[in-house]
Write a protein that binds this DNA or RNA. Structure first.
Lengths: 160, 160
DNA sequence: CTCTCTGCAAAGCCTTTGCAGATTG
DNA sequence: CAATCTGCAAAGGCTTTGCAGAGAG
């Protein structure tokens, strides 16, 4: 569950993020609601990548008084994704998982045993990606990379 | 539609592929049916990554006499994916696209304007991926990388 | 001949949408 | 106050499944 590699880093403070979010809402004539704040906050405080359903559950646990509908989760996630505040990862058949996009760019290492996601960055790969996009005349906007395999923990357990 | 970069290469002949497929079926006590052959053949002859629906449509066009149900497409695709004959790419909300896995390993460059997918390979990136997985104690089985942006063609059209 | 496959239609997910009341600005 | 939001439940897509007849080995 918990990660202790050196590759991840939140590059933005929550207050800052919240401010940006409010700004964006205002700019688009949208309203700042408790639900939206709670969703942003929950995403911020989660090191895991969350499915809409997992996010919903987490919010229901942490804010039992606030009756948050799954529809609002979806609507807000869509909103946040449009505004590039969160990004989503698509998996095989299991749908999408969301994470805050406010971190330093990173890639994902996904354990096929336990489903955990470890993040990492590598400057060399980033550089090559740009070089390749350029070589093919492609205007690169974003990229994502996933490595699938068995994480260190599961390897110990399975002795492989 | 058509791609003319130097990065793609089919490394296996159709006859070979078909033979392997038959072998696999036999090994698992499964049967070789016209539908399965047609699906394999259509995937082989398509340079695009196909959604189950697109594949279905293509088959209906090319084999109007063969009434192929979408359920069979899904079942066969699942079978082929399990056997690592095809691999799937997941996109935002638009579901999955499948491609034959019988090519040299490659990554994907996806145009956010026209949705086209260009394949490429880069030895340096492949090498780094292994190095990173090793460094993190991860047993790497597979990986995928996508670059999102605007393809050369669309750039011309849009003048960007 | 036996066992697997297929097409069809029904059933199941996950996600989106319509609506009336609740909330924000 | 006017406009957006929310929760609920219904509606929508895409994918999977059950079944009876068709087809492969």
């Amino acid at each position: 569950m918990s990660q202790d590699n050196d590759f991840t880093a939140k590059t933005i403070e929550y207050e800052q993020l919240l401010e940006d979010f409010k700004q964006l809402l205002k700019k688009n004539g949208l309203k700042f609601t408790i639900q939206r704040e709670v969703i942003l906050e929950t995403l911020y405080n989660s090191d895991e990548h969350l499915t809409p359903e997992a996010l919903h559950k987490k919010i229901q646990e942490n804010y039992p008084d606030l009756k948050t509908g799954i529809a609002t989760i979806y609507r807000t996630l869509g909103l946040l994704e449009n505004e590039d505040i969160v990004t989503s990862l698509s998996f095989g058949a299991q749908g999408k998982k969301y994470e805050l996009g406010a971190k330093e760019h990173h890639d994902h290492m996904i354990c096929t045993e336990c489903g955990s996601i470890t993040e990492f960055v590598d400057a060399e790969i980033e550089k090559r990606q740009h070089a390749i996009a350029d070589a093919l005349g492609f205007l690169m906007k974003d990229h994502s990379m996933q490595i699938y395999g068995v994480c260190a923990e599961c390897r110990k357990k399975l002795n492989i």
